[in-house]
Design a protein around this nucleic acid. Structure first.
Length: 515
DNA sequence: AACCCGGAAGGCAT
DNA sequence: AATGCCTTCCGGGT
């Protein structure tokens, strides 16, 4: 089983609102390739690994041009290359165009345990072929072996605060893929941006009325609209252009785009029809254990939940989405939506609600108030705080279980949490995230005469520390709280506490320097 | 004007 | 059919 390691995609260099960057690499990869990420040593010369360069020489780059024999050659190659279960060639008596039209489910039916891999590889090959045809002059043209300038962020990976993320980061330099894998492993049953693997094998009928007619460059339709017609109507106006640009951006990934970008992108933007949430849970190949519970009972949200989506963007190892959303203080879960419209667009694409805007998305965020997933950072625009760490957030996917655990009287959180103070975080540049673990400034000796400005700054720093510490305490305290995502019950803290501006919970201890 | 809030109704997927 | 999770719309407040 191989996975294509590769460089991280470019850090967005566009201004906010431009949606030309791909969405984050998805833990879906572990779902698809759970048996092990490739060792970097298998391709020591370069982190890049190009499918096409590995394809049998007789095969053209565009799988749609393959003959029936070519398809067989490809399948044999894929068997070897990805350690797939033996593929029954009788099931693939078709030419390249035909195999490219097979859905993931179709492929899984014809090649149990291997369909998902085949599908992904074919998608990548088709995309690459499209790129070569459609975007020969793209600035990220595939002519370069290193088309992606690595961001400074990537050369100095952020030090995460959440424990689950710390261990894997040390391997970052040695291997992006390994780091990503570790990241995903650490995130346990975390989410992906692609549709959830379904166990509904019944949906895998050869006829898929909702399936896209074709793939590749036409996956969004010729004009960039949803190809299955089931999606929301994109708004006219320049928003269309924006989406077209974005979709082209996805599609313009060069052939060297690592599969961990290609695959999620493809599924990410694939219209979300029921038939397309396809069976990728080929029993022999994909193990649910990689997502934590292992019993298969835990729903896999795969980034379809908003908080999950935000976490993915926030925790992107390459920090590619900091122009959209960024931690202000990861330790306390405070983040800022840097580009509300842009983020909303991303979310809209994720959910195939192309008319999504910040107003609607923020409404969804506000629903999280009452279930204690989020709260607003008062006084700062677009700033919210996760009230639960990722580990716990993952657990609340099992809503029914949590609801069972909640007795009617247990729906109220502890008193000191029930009254949530209005917390004001001092405005700070978002790039604070990159130095969030810098040691706090040393207290200024009292004997030093401070200028008014410096004193003000010190007060601000102390205020910030105080707020951070309080947030941190509350943030971690939340871990014991039950969660009920249902909209019923008296768990609505936000509505009753919107205007509470005093801290009713005991102040957590502060550093002596603060007083 | 932009942001923020939460009620209400409804859609969609599970 | 029930439920969860939004999505959409809205009136109101800051």
């Amino acid at each position: 089983m191989k996975l294509v390691p590769g460089p991280l995609p470019p850090i967005p260099t566009t201004t906010s609102g431009s949606l030309s960057l791909p969405l984050p690499f998805s833990p879906d990869l572990l779902w698809r390739y759970p048996l092990g990420f490739p060792s970097v040593g298998s391709h020591p010369s370069s982190p890049l690994w190009d499918y096409k360069s590995q394809l049998p020489g007789s095969l053209s780059a565009d799988p749609r041009g393959w003959s029936r024999e070519d398809v067989c050659i490809f399948l044999r190659w894929a068997e070897r290359e990805f350690d797939l279960q033996p593929i029954d060639m009788e099931m693939f008596q078709m030419n390249g165009k035909a195999i490219c039209l097979l859905t993931r489910t179709d492929l899984s039916e014809r090649a149990p345990g291997s369909g998902d891999v085949l599908h992904n590889v074919l998608q990548i090959l088709m995309r690459d072929a499209n790129n070569m045809r459609l975007l020969p002059n793209s600035p990220i043209t595939p002519t370069s072996r290193h088309p992606y300038p690595l961001s400074p962020h990537t050369s100095q990976p952020p030090t995460p605060s959440w424990n689950v993320m710390t261990s894997q980061q040390s391997d970052y330099h040695s291997s992006h893929a390994a780091s990503l894998a570790a990241h995903l492993m650490a995130q346990s049953n975390s989410v992906t941006l692609s549709p959830a693997p379904s166990v509904d094998s019944q949906s895998g009928s050869p006829n898929h009325p909702d399936a896209p007619v074709s793939f590749g460059h036409s996956i969004f339709g010729a004009n960039g609209s949803s190809s299955n017609g089931s999606g929301s109507n994109p708004s006219d106006s320049d928003e269309d252009d924006k989406f077209t640009e974005m979709k082209n951006g996805y599609l313009s990934s060069p052939p060297n785009t690592p599969s961990y970008m290609n695959i999620p992108q493809m599924s990410f933007l694939t219209p979300r029809s029921p038939k397309q949430i396809e069976n990728v849970s080929s029993p022999g190949l994909y193990k649910r254990e990689f997502f934590g519970s292992g019993d298969g009972s835990e729903p896999n949200t795969n980034g379809r939940l908003l908080w999950d989506f935000l976490q993915q963007l926030l925790n992107d190892p390459a920090q590619r989405y900091t122009s959209y959303i960024a931690w202000k203080n990861r330790d306390t879960g405070v983040f800022k939506i840097v580009d509300p419209p842009g983020l909303a667009k991303l979310w809209g694409i994720q959910k195939n609600h192309l008319s999504m805007n910040y107003d609607k998305m923020s409404r969804a965020l506000r629903y999280y108030y009452r279930v204690n997933i989020l709260r607003k950072v008062q006084g700062e625009r677009h700033c919210y705080q996760f009230l639960r760490n990722p580990t716990e957030l993952k657990n609340i996917k099992n809503i029914s279980l949590l609801r069972q655990q909640m007795s009617p009287t247990a729906t109220k959180p502890p008193a000191q949490i029930q009254i949530i103070p209005q917390i004001t975080i001092k405005p700070e540049p978002v790039d604070h995230i990159s130095k969030e673990h810098e040691p706090m400034p040393a207290p200024v000796p009292t004997h030093v005469k401070l200028s008014e400005q410096v004193q003000k700054q010190l007060v601000q720093q102390q205020t910030q520390q105080k707020s951070d510490e309080r947030l941190r305490m509350e943030y971690h305290h939340q871990e014991d709280k039950p969660t009920d995502l249902s909209m019923e019950g008296p768990t609505d803290l936000s509505s009753g506490n919107r205007h509470v501006s005093i801290v009713c919970s005991p102040d957590p201890p502060f550093n002596g320097a603060n007083h």
